[in-house]
Amino acid sequence: MSVSAVPKIDAHQHFWRYSPENYRWINDQMTVLKQDLLPKNLIPQLAAHGIQGSVLVQACSRFDETRWLLNLAEENDFVKAVVGWVDIAGSALGSQLALLQQQPLLRGVRHQVQDEASPADWLANSAVGRGVEQVQRQGYVYEMLVNQQHLDALATFAGRHDRHYLVLDHFGKPDLSQGVAHWVKQVKPLAAMPHVSCKLSGLLTEPRPRGFAPNDLLPWFDAALSLFGSQRLMFGSDWPVCLLAGDYGNGKSLCQQATEALSPTERDAIFGGNACKIYALHSDLTGVSHESAS
């Protein structure tokens, strides 16, 4: 049996040095996350599951976290790209982007829109719009993190920003209790836009109806495949947040199960090829180093 030349990429993972003031979204029910979670903690998982590289995503709305993540990426060769945070609606945006131009591993930016007092108002804000236009002009991916109740506002936002790739994180965080047909209706306008891709990540940690087993989530994967196609979907572990629902392998196993009927080419795209394209990853991926600087 031939081995695929397409590298396996985890398109969504995080690191942090935990502090309550910087990671306020980590609540008292998330004790497993209230610790430093660093490359040395993830490397064994990537190696065990045959993952050659990762996309490291911000988890804190601070520019100094972005610079720290970029330093980690330089020190750990399995991190192939960073999605950081910049003050996208603020006066500091230009100077921050100027500093980051010297950082080749920065490939995208994200803001935790779901944590805004009014996500819909934030998405409609003209200063935000100008900031997104600027980061797209400079060739950065913009990642979109909202809860399902703001997918309508997000579709309007995405329609205004088609200069470069947009990526929907975590299926758009669906309300599983309302069923897959409800989610399809919500996300269909986004999926109709060819510059929008979606991460197959985070579903295991969304609140589930009583009695819902992991396999009961497969219809959302099937629907995502129908809506976006295999060329606009990416596997992401959402490590270490995924630890709230088990271990690293649970999410990967679910995604493998959901895609087992696809062709090898389609599976390769979801498990690495699409991330390589969207984040412009280097072709000379050399695998996971078992040494970490942190």
Results as ranks from 00 to 15, higher is better:
A11F: 14
A11Y: 12
H12D: 12
Q13S: 13
Q13L: 15
H14Y: 13
H14Q: 08
W16I: 12
P20Y: 13
E21R: 12
N22S: 14
N22E: 14
Y23I: 04
R24H: 13
W25A: 03
W25N: 05
Q29G: 15
M30T: 01
M30V: 06
M30Q: 10
V32N: 11
V32M: 11
V32S: 14
L33E: 08
L33I: 04
K34G: 01
Q35N: 13
Q35V: 06
D36Y: 06
L38P: 03
P39W: 06
K40A: 15
K40H: 13
L42E: 05
I43S: 01
I43P: 03
I43H: 00
Q45V: 00
Q45N: 13
L46F: 00
A48R: 14
H49E: 02
G50Y: 06
G50L: 08
Q52Y: 11
Q52E: 15
G53P: 15
G53M: 13
L56Y: 13
V57M: 11
V57F: 10
A59I: 06
S61N: 15
F63K: 01
D64G: 06
D64R: 01
E65F: 08
E65V: 06
T66E: 05
R67Y: 08
R67Q: 08
W68A: 03
W68F: 07
L69Q: 10
L70K: 03
N71I: 01
N71E: 11
L72D: 00
A73I: 04
A73L: 07
E74F: 03
E75R: 13
E75P: 08
D77Q: 10
F78A: 10
F78Q: 13
F78I: 03
V79S: 01
V79F: 07
V82G: 00
V83S: 01
V83L: 00
G84L: 03
G84M: 00
W85Q: 01
W85F: 13
W85D: 04
V86L: 03
V86I: 02
D87S: 10
G90M: 06
G90W: 04
S91F: 00
A92D: 10
G94I: 14
G94K: 15
G94S: 14
S95W: 10
S95H: 07
S95E: 14
Q96G: 02
A98F: 02
L99G: 05
L99Q: 09
L99K: 06
L99W: 02
L100T: 07
L100R: 10
L100I: 05
Q102W: 03
P104D: 11
P104A: 10
P104L: 07
L105C: 04
L106Y: 04
L106R: 05
